[in-house]
Design a protein around this nucleic acid. Structure first.
Length: 228
DNA sequence: ACCCAGGGTCATA
DNA sequence: TATGACCATGGG
């Protein structure tokens, strides 16, 4: 018998099955297919509470000027940085976050140097930066540093709640929920990266109405699924 | 005009 | 602990 794991009795392997169903329904999302680790981290900051289209526009404006580089960001006058990232919204806050993150990264010796540190330590260091919370920290860990981390976002909480995999997902704190999920999945950054992207894609496309949308591909593993 | 988008921080009760 | 206000742009 597997050791005690809350909630696994009803949905044994539920998370892995959810991944399979989402992949089948939506296909691979290929987030950040090409691009440096720094560009990925910049994207993680710029996309906060913002449509990806807008964040991508801001990244393009930086890229056109060869500014996707921590030292280049730091050398740039703040007003110029703010003007360039304006399409991403919250540009005053995000300019400060990008500068703080760039300074931290340069001080650490770059992304290659970061790989020497354990995930928990990096997560704490990132989340200590102003403008980087738990979710953005995990996004950077996952997509830029390829650490096997589950990114807990609002879509994930909603989906876990509605499927009944974790009915209290909306109320549990970030670290507890993320850790609980990571325990049940392979420590595979590629899988977890695809999973997060799929959850976002699903959240945008489906299940807006509650409690469950008719014809939803996730319906058959949903505790609320009825005859409708 | 209204709502939302791949969050985070701070003030208040 | 838990809401609420605020940050700002762009598309449906």
């Amino acid at each position: 018998m597997p050791s005690a794991s809350a909630g696994s009795s009803v949905h044994s392997g539920g998370l892995r099955r959810l991944y399979d169903v989402l992949l089948e329904a939506h296909g691979p999302q290929h987030w950040w297919p090409g691009g440096s680790a720094f560009e990925i981290a910049v994207g993680a900051v710029l996309v906060q509470r913002t449509a990806w289209r807008n964040a991508a526009g801001a990244i393009a404006r930086l890229a056109e000027r060869d500014l996707i580089d921590p030292s280049a960001i730091l050398d740039l006058p703040v007003s110029h940085l703010q003007r360039l990232i304006r399409p991403a919204g919250f540009f005053r806050q995000k300019s400060g976050t990008l500068r703080s993150f760039s300074a931290w990264l340069v001080a650490a010796g770059g992304f290659d140097s970061l790989q020497a540190y354990p995930t928990a330590e990096l997560r704490a260091a990132l989340a200590a930066l102003r403008g980087i919370g738990p979710e953005t920290a995990d996004s950077i860990l996952l997509y830029a540093l390829h650490r096997p981390v589950f990114v807990v976002d609002a879509y994930a909480r909603r989906l876990l709640t509605r499927t009944g995999i974790r009915p209290d997902a909306g109320a549990v704190d970030y670290a507890s929920l993320g850790g609980w999920i990571e325990e049940q999945l392979p420590a595979d950054a590629a899988l977890l990266g695809e999973f997060h992207a799929l959850i976002v894609a699903h959240g945008k496309a489906r299940c807006r109405p509650r409690p469950v949308c008719p014809g939803c591909p996730v319906e058959d593993i949903c505790v609320y699924a009825s005859g409708g």
